[in-house]
């Protein structure tokens, strides 16, 4: 058995009468390149929220590195090695790109309680943030406020923040949504150059990206896992073509 990073056991989440996620059994292996696909409203984002602790499951358990984290709040799960990006940007809009990434790195290093030294004196943090900024081709925007950037560039900041947390599990919720196609390769390059040890789960509508990136694909429909397999198996499944792949391109 390969080592399992993240696992859910019959996880469900209801919103009133709506079963957004139902009985999901899911495993993310060490070094996984895993894609989660499914039509809009399938429950993909809700599932990520359950994994990260933004939402509590109505039923079921979430395990991180063999440890039950169901009752552990979001911020503490981050400390255990799980990081994510948001489908809709959640950034420090009034702060500069550098400050955005600095915050993530300083939280990871646990220096954010330091009140008596200037943030600028931590050259190591600045250097690390600048490397991430460079990796996402944001150098020219380093000193600009996030709110002044075009939406597509803001998406890159989302990723830089998540990478600043040096996670073992990285969950990407439609990272390329809203990014002009000329820039989407920046995201793929950044994800492609991640360490082999990190398990990555990506939600993505662009099937070219999914089939290029993923070694494993889970298809979610109506809150349930509809199918799971290698890209070949998924592509060959006529039922999946019918429910999903056929209509994916206007998702």
């Amino acid at each position: 058995m390969t080592a399992c990073l993240l696992e859910t056991r019959t996880v469900s989440r209801n919103f009133g009468a709506l079963a957004a996620v139902s009985d999901v059994e899911f495993r993310l292996e060490v070094g996984a390149r895993h894609a989660l696909i499914g039509p809009n409203g399938a429950g993909k984002t809700t599932f990520i929220n359950l994994l990260t602790g933004v939402l509590r499951p109505t039923q079921g358990r979430v395990m991180l590195k063999g440890r039950d984290v169901t009752d552990i709040p979001e911020a503490q799960r981050v400390k255990l090695g799980i990081a994510r990006t948001f489908q809709i940007n959640r950034l420090f809009r009034g702060l500069t790109v550098l400050e955005n990434v600095y915050i993530a790195v300083s939280e990871r290093l646990g220096i954010a309680l330091d009140m008596f030294r200037p943030a600028g004196a931590r050259r190591d943090v600045i250097e690390e943030a600048m490397h991430l900024i460079a990796a996402l081709k944001l150098e020219d925007d380093t000193g600009r406020r996030v709110s002044e950037l075009p939406y597509g560039r803001q998406r890159l900041v989302e990723i830089a923040i998540a990478l600043g947390l040096k996670p073992e599990v990285l969950l990407l919720d439609e990272p390329a949504a809203g990014v002009p196609s000329a820039e989407s390769h920046i995201i793929l390059d950044a994800i492609g150059s991640l360490s082999e040890q990190i398990g990555v789960l990506i939600i993505e509508h662009d099937m070219d990206v999914v089939f290029r990136f993923a070694e494993r694909i889970t298809v979610m429909v109506g809150g349930r896992i509809f199918a799971e397999g290698t890209p070949k198996e998924i592509a060959a499944d006529p039922e999946i073509r019918a429910v999903y792949l056929g209509q994916a391109y206007h998702g």
Binding site: A75, R84, L95, E107, I161
Partner: peptide
Amino acid sequence: QSLAGIRENTLRMHAVG
């Protein structure tokens, strides 16, 4: 800096731990 982060986006601060 972390206070500014909380002011600008509390939810994201949770998500950076």
